[in-house]
Lab assay of single mutants.
Amino acid sequence: MQIFVKTATGKTITLEVEPSDTIENVKAKIQDKEGIPPDQQRLAFAGKQLEDGRTLSDYNIQKESTLHLALR
């Protein structure tokens, strides 16, 4: 499925993911596309910060959802 990640600079990244993917996997995909190390990424959805060990389906993130990326 496709999801979107909006960066602090307003850029939107499109990612191909599975509901079973962990947040860690998603951060690795962002690193592949943007070169941002996962340990510098903070992802949020619906106002909640997402934890590495959880999956997209844990957070009820569905196709075409938009996550927000902040850098630490």
Rank of each mutant, 00 (worst) to 15 (best):
I30G: 00
E34I: 09
L43S: 00
M1V: 09
D39I: 11
T55W: 05
L69K: 00
P37D: 15
D39H: 06
I61H: 01
K11M: 06
V26E: 00
F45C: 03
N60Q: 11
I23M: 05
V26F: 02
L43Y: 03
V5H: 00
L43D: 00
G35D: 15
Q49I: 12
E18F: 15
Q49F: 09
K29E: 04
T14V: 15
M1K: 02
D32W: 08
M1D: 03
G35R: 09
R54E: 06
I23P: 02
F4T: 14
K33A: 13
P38Y: 10
L56I: 11
G53Y: 10
K29Y: 12
F4E: 04
Y59G: 01
K29P: 00
K29R: 10
A46C: 04
L50I: 05
D58H: 07
L71S: 15
N25T: 14
A46P: 02
Y59M: 05
Q40A: 13
I61G: 00
T7A: 06
I61Q: 01
F45T: 03
E18M: 05
E51V: 09
G53S: 14
V26A: 02
D52N: 09
Q49G: 10
E51N: 06
Q40V: 15
I13A: 02
V26Q: 00
S20G: 08
R72F: 12
T14W: 09
G10M: 09
E18S: 06
E34V: 07
T22W: 07
L15F: 07
L50N: 00
P19T: 11
A70S: 05
T7I: 10
V26P: 00
E18D: 09
T9A: 14
Q40S: 13
A44W: 12
P37I: 07
G53P: 15
A28P: 01
I36R: 02
E51L: 05
K6P: 01
H68F: 14
N60S: 09
Q40I: 05
L15T: 01
L69D: 01
V17Y: 07
D39L: 07
P38F: 09
G35L: 05
I36A: 05
T66M: 12
L56S: 01
T9G: 06
I61K: 00
P19M: 08
D32I: 14
R72A: 13
S57F: 14
H68C: 04
